[in-house]
């Protein structure tokens, strides 16, 4: 299966690295920025495509790792050209755009995998399995944390182009909360006061469920450079599972403090269990064998709608009914 990547920013590089490690056939890439494209193709020794149309002619599977604002156009064109699509999260900038992508997938008969990578982090997966297999009893409270330093200059910072922090970042944990607890009926969120001239943002959202379960999802671009903390806490009637990135990893590195942080931080995973590898391996296997994806386009759309509800509640100060 010949794979082409469109968009060679951070996520394009992360996916290309993972394809190389799992021995997938990444044949080339396209990006409107010629310098970035040249650097990417020399790094991964793949072909540069001169246009997106050329990419669509040359590959079977399109991996869209372009910025969120470009998702709809790129994904729909690929589907209409009869290609399967791996689409980086979030699905789209808004729910209507997301629905159009899903409709294009249905109309084309091609398959769409939205890369919700947190579902492939081994600790998140293991914890969800504990919850879903009933070993914790009915899950009553869920806490999820994902806070890092603000993104550098670029489209991430611009809510018009990225959807903003809740849509770009909190969507991971909102999707995870849905995976464990299903769809909430109410959402309430509070956002940090703005700081003039800075991208700093911190949001806490409480999700309320019909059966009395509740979740607190914390997300932020708010820490000093270099810090990225995540945590989960699933408490049930019969058991509890906790994990935090503060726990020591199998391999630790003591770099000098105060070094410049990378442009976009990615959490460090286990050594042989890179979640991007697991995610893309799963997607390719499901495509090759015609098996269902572990995370469906409908999941991706529901997570987006939840993120938009969180953003709306943080904006309005009101409880948003989402049932």
């Amino acid at each position: 299966m010949k794979i082409g990547i469109v968009g060679v920013g951070t996520m394009g590089r992360v996916h290309a690295d993972a394809y190389r490690r799992i021995g997938a056939e990444l044949v080339g890439a396209y990006d409107p920025n010629p310098e970035k494209l040249a650097e990417f193709v020399s790094r991964f020794t793949v072909d540069p495509f001169r246009s997106y149309d050329e990419l669509l002619l040359r590959v079977d599977l399109v991996d869209v790792t372009a910025p969120t604002f470009a998702h709809e156009e790129l994904a729909v064109r690929a589907l209409e050209a009869g290609k399967d699509v791996i689409l980086e999260k979030p699905l789209a900038l808004d729910a209507a755009s997301g629905r159009r992508i899903l409709a294009a997938a249905r109309a084309s008969g091609r398959r769409l995998f939205v890369a919700m990578v947190v579902r492939f982090f081994p600790q998140y997966r293991r914890a969800a399995e504990l919850a879903k297999s009933g070993q914790l009893g009915r899950v009553g409270t869920v806490r999820l944390k994902r806070v890092l330093f603000p993104p550098g200059p670029g489209w991430y910072r611009d809510p018009e182009r990225s959807g903003g922090m809740p849509v770009d970042l909190m969507i991971h944990d909102l999707d995870y909360a849905r995976w464990v607890l299903g769809d909430p009926v109410r959402v309430f969120a509070r956002r940090s006061p703005g700081v003039e001239g800075k991208v700093l943002e911190h949001v806490q959202a409480v999700l309320g469920y019909e059966n009395g379960a509740m979740a607190l999802v914390e997300g932020g671009w708010a820490y000093p450079p270099g810090y990225f903390r995540t945590a989960l806490d699933l408490a049930g009637e019969r058991g509890l599972v906790e994990w935090s990135s503060d726990q020591p990893p199998p391999l630790g590195t003591l770099f000098p403090k105060g070094e410049p942080a990378p442009e976009v931080g990615l959490p460090m995973a286990g050594l042989e269990e890179d979640p991007y590898e697991l995610e893309l391996r799963h997607a390719l296997e499901a495509l090759e064998r015609g098996k269902p994806f572990d995370v469906t386009p409908e999941d991706a759309l529901a997570a987006l709608e939840l993120a938009l509800a969180v953003r709306a509640s943080a904006d309005s100060g009101r409880v948003v009914e989402v049932a």
């Binding site: 309430f188 969120a189 509070r190 806490q204 509740m214 979740a215």
Partner: peptide, 17 residues
């Protein structure tokens, strides 16, 4: 179980689990 999202008088959001 109780999850609270407060707004303090200084505008700071604060949660209590």
């Amino acid at each position: 179980a109780g999850l609270l999202l407060l707004k303090l008088e200084n505008g700071v959001p604060a949660s209590i689990d």
